[in-house]
Amino acid sequence: MAHDIRTGASLYSFQDDYFEGKRDLEGCIAAAAELGAEGIETLAEQMMPGFPDLSDEFYATFAGWMEKYGTVSVAHDMFLDTKKYKHRELTHDEMVASLHRDIDHAAKLPARNIRIIVNTPPSVVEAAAPYARDKGVKMGVEIHSPWSFDDDWIKRHLDVSERVGTDVVGCVPDLGIFVRKFPRVIIDRALRDGADPDVVARCVKNYDEQGDTQALFDEVEASGADPLTVNFARMTTHFIDSDPARLTDHVDQIIHIHAKFYEMLDSGEEYSIPYDEIIAALKKGGYRGYLNSEYEGNRHIQDIQAVDAYGQVGLHQQMMKRLIAADDQGE
């Protein structure tokens, strides 16, 4: 089946610039557009203060920016504050009401897709599906490490998609489920913070060789290692290396993709994630949708350097466009 893969950017990538006052919301959209992103993904709770009570004027301004910069608003990333109340979890009905609020927002932006954060119960998505359908909005649970396509929680979400229809419920894989080499920016940060270099090296080797990260974590914890070293060992248990072929298997349910990356190298490759295999798998399945740059190296380097989201997203867009355009005949 012919694929139609487009690139976009999540404004999450530019959060340091926004936080530090270097770019406002319009500036982040302009930067993404300059770098070749056609789709724009936004986090209302990040860059739209006052959400969910945004004015009609705000929505009109936002639509004007999409026109001005030649971009398409493709996704809204929702959150579900199940711990809003200190002594009890939100009830099912409160969760559904919270999701309706996000559906209303996505319909007004408009954004065709909502990223459903992974702590959202499948029953809440199912209950909100008729409302989303009425509003013309699709919902996709984010498949984010440490969960993969094969975990029960995700399977329950995919079952909802089967029941209510892929026209309204699907999934949003985060490419952080395909971490083949442990991210160097995280290793370097742990070493700067003072984690034990020998133990860190052992944990990284174990991860990269697909060893049992939980067993090594248990061993490091039991050894009485310092908290920073134990934390690093724990962190390796939170990363996973799924098979990119899973994207081909599930392509009919994928509404949108978070193209997570940690570090673009000057050579134009991502350090950890096998984008060549990922994009080949999406082409093979005939994926029609967006790959949105989601830069997450930022938080791991901000202690020593100014975060260069612009440069990193630029390299990432170029890499994705090159791989999308590549001739895969014979692969």
């Binding site: 999450y12 959060q15 936080f19 986090l43 709770e45 990040q46 203060p49 959150f79 504050d81 711990k83 809003k84 109340y85 200190k86 938080r299």
Partner: peptide
């Protein structure tokens, strides 16, 4: 002090 997170939060949290 600024919020040590990538989005705003309700103050009850």
């Amino acid at each position: 002090s600024r919020i040590a997170y990538y989005r705003g939060l309700g103050v009850s949290m």
